[in-house]
Structure formats: structure tokens, C-alpha cells
Design a protein around this nucleic acid. Structure first.
Lengths: 193, 193
DNA sequence: AAAGGCAACTAACATTTGTTAGTATATTTG
DNA sequence: CAAATATACTAACAAATGTTAGTTGCCTTT
């Protein structure tokens, strides 16, 4: 089964690339660096991928597509707006913990995408943000949330969840569940007494 | 006064470098790119700076030193812990708005610092975080804040303030003051009703 | 007017970069 | 078993990179 094997190697390259891009940035990672990590000469990787740019694209759109499709799913559930927003926060934290490197790349290195891919990514992100913002707005209109500035709330939530990538390691004395609960409380209720 | 002129050119290089590093990353910005932006051949800039690495160092430590010295000052004021934390949040937002490019570089490109400079930067940041965390802890102990996990609160605050760099432009329909007030409310009281 | 130094230039350097060509060895397919 | 395909390798490329050397013109000081 050549296909299976090929996909595995390809997947390995993508995973190692995500780790290296996260650690050293897209520009700071050479194909020879990546080859060394994968256990292969740089040139050999071209049997599995078409270009360095393609690696970045695959990582970024994998993450982007996950967010978009999950948002669509959450939008259709029959729950309160607060619950929907909590579900989105949960999604962000879980993805960060389970696939931190890829999310990190999609967060930080998307700007090295080229031409139409760059535009497509920005468009997808904008749409995601719009969908998220709409939930906040509706939550306010429904009286479930404080009348905060929607953009401010949106970006504060999105950012407040990003640091997990920089900080969370299994065995830091806090489980993923505790972490999530703490963040959720903070965003919903604040730190003031 | 040759010295004055020299400092001005040097300053210009640092400012344009911060903008470019923010837009395209440290690795994605070539000395020739920077020269074009400054209005000078790449080689000519070496009359004002010693290396590309030095540019990054100067930007990163300028920001880092500002944070550290301001924290020291705030620590010594005679106010409640809540007020001190609010002062720090205010500092972050103000710096982001006034010197966004440099702060952005210090946030994202510090990892390209080399050897001892990298260590020194990480050390400085760790100390800053420790000082900030101590204020939160003391605020909890004094009964001014909810008993949240200190690390979670610290990083949520630090991150919640970062997005300003990605989003805020003068003339976005919201003033710096409104922005600050909104973020402050959100972090202190949350979005839930 | 002469001298000295600052700041710009051009040209070139050694590396490193992403990628292709060509080749050899496995592995799968007929 | 033979043929075909997939996957690894080495060697090399053209372009781009940070940086240095050497030179020229300009401004300040004497």
C-alpha cells in the first residue's frame, strides 16, 4: 500500500515542520533543518511535498478549516449564546493543547503565505471572526452578556486563549480541564471581586 | 553636531526596522529591504549600526527595559493592588499604541536573539512576569481579587492586551481611551451578566 | 584654502537558501 | 520473475543573504 506509506511520511514532514516553524519561524527554518528533523535529505522530501510554501499552506489551512467547520457546527446547536461562546473557547483551548504547533504556525506564520493563498487565508479568518462576533452580539442583544464593545470582546477572547500555546505543557501542575475552567471563569467573570 | 545627526539616522533605521520586522518578520526582512525603506544602500547602514542582530537587540531591549523600569515604579506607588494592576494594563496598552511596531517585535521576534542576548532577554521577561504575578497574588491575599490561578490570570492579561497591536489603528471608530476602558472592564468584570 | 572625518556609494565575498536533475535501491504490481 | 513505481541519495544550480573593502564627496574645523 504505497499510498498509506506516502501519506505517513508526508504527515511526518508536516508535523516536524509545524514544530520547527513554531520554534524558529517559517523564514528561520531551512529545508535542510527540516530534513534533518525528519531524518531525510532536504531534496528527498520533494518526493512527498511540492515546495516549502506548500508545507506552510497545508498547515495553515488545516487549522483554518478546523475552526471554520467547528464554528458552523456550533452555530447550529440549540443552546444559549453563552453556551455557544463557551463551546468556542473550549474548542480553541483543546486545539491549542492537542495540536499546538500547527495552531501556533497558523497564528504567527500565516503572513508568509503567498498571493491567493494569503488572501484566502485572511478571508477565512475574517469570516470566522465575523461569525464569532455575531454570537457575541446576539448574546448581548438577548441580555445574556454585558453590553461590551463586540470587537474588543472578540479579540480579547481570541488572544486570551493564545498564550496557552506558549505556556501549557503537560505536567505543569495543572490539567487541561483545570486550565480551561480557569480561563473560562476569567473571561466570563473577570478577576475583580 | 555630527553626533545628533548620527543618532537621528540610527533612530530612523531602528524605527523602519521595527515596522518591517513586524510586517515580515526578522528573517523575512533583508538588509536590502531595510535599506530601501530607510533610503540608503544596505551597506551604508553599517555606518550607523554594527549588524542586523544588533538592530533586533536594540529594539527588544528598549521595550524590555521600559517594562521593567515602569514595573519598578508602579510597585513603589502607594495604592491598592487593583490600582497597580490597572496601571500595568494601562502601560501595556499605551506602549502598544505609541510604539506598536517595537512592542510587536519584542513580542514575536525576540526568539531570533542570539546567545547571551537571548538569555538576558528571557531572564528579564521572566522577572517582569514574576513581579506582575506577585502583584496579582498579593491582590488575592488582600481580598481585592477573586482567588484565580495566578499564572492563568497573568498570562490572560498579558495576552489580552497583545491583540491591540494587530487591530488598533487611529480612526477605527474607537479612541485609545475607550479601547483601554473596554479592555479594563472586560478583564476585571468579564463578559457575563 | 587645507585637512580630517563622517556618511554615502559600488563591488565583491562567502554562505545559505529552495529547488532540480540524474541515479540507485527498494517495494509493489503484473 | 519481470516491470514498474516509489523513494532515497548526491551534486549542482541560481538567487539571495549579511557583511567587508575600498572609494568618493561633503561638511566642519583649523
Amino acid at each position: 500500500m504505497a499510498k498509506k506509506v506516502k501519506n505517513n511520511k508526508r504527515q511526518l514532514i508536516l508535523e516536524e515542520a509545524a514544530k520547527l516553524f513554531k520554534a524558529k519561524g517559517f523564514g528561520g527554518t531551512s529545508m535542510r533543518d527540516l530534513g534533518a528533523q525528519v531524518g531525510m535529505e532536504a531534496a528527498s522530501m520533494y518526493n512527498h511535498i511540492n515546495s516549502k510554501d506548500e508545507i506552510l499552506e497545508l498547515i495553515c489551512f488545516h487549522v483554518s478549516n478546523t475552526y471554520v467547520s467547528q464554528l458552523a457546527q456550533i452555530e447550529q446547536t440549540d443552546t444559549s449564546y453563552v453556551e455557544k461562546i463557551k463551546a468556542l473557547i473550549h474548542l480553541h483551548i483543546r486545539l491549542m493543547i492537542e495540536d499546538g504547533a500547527a495552531v501556533s504556525v497558523a497564528n504567527n506564520d500565516w503572513k508568509y503565505l503567498t498571493n491567493d493563498k494569503l488572501e484566502a487565508f485572511k478571508e477565512a479568518r475574517k469570516n470566522y471572526e465575523k461569525g464569532f462576533a455575531a454570537l457575541i452580539e446576539q448574546g448581548i442583544a438577548a441580555g445574556e452578556l454585558q453590553p461590551v464593545n463586540t470587537s474588543v470582546a472578540l479579540f480579547t477572547i481570541l488572544s486570551a486563549v493564545r498564550w496557552v500555546e506558549l505556556w501549557y505543557r503537560p505536567g505543569r501542575g495543572i490539567t487541561a480541564e483545570e486550565l480551561e475552567e480557569n480561563i473560562m471563569t476569567l473571561l466570563l467573570n473577570g478577576i475583580a471581586k
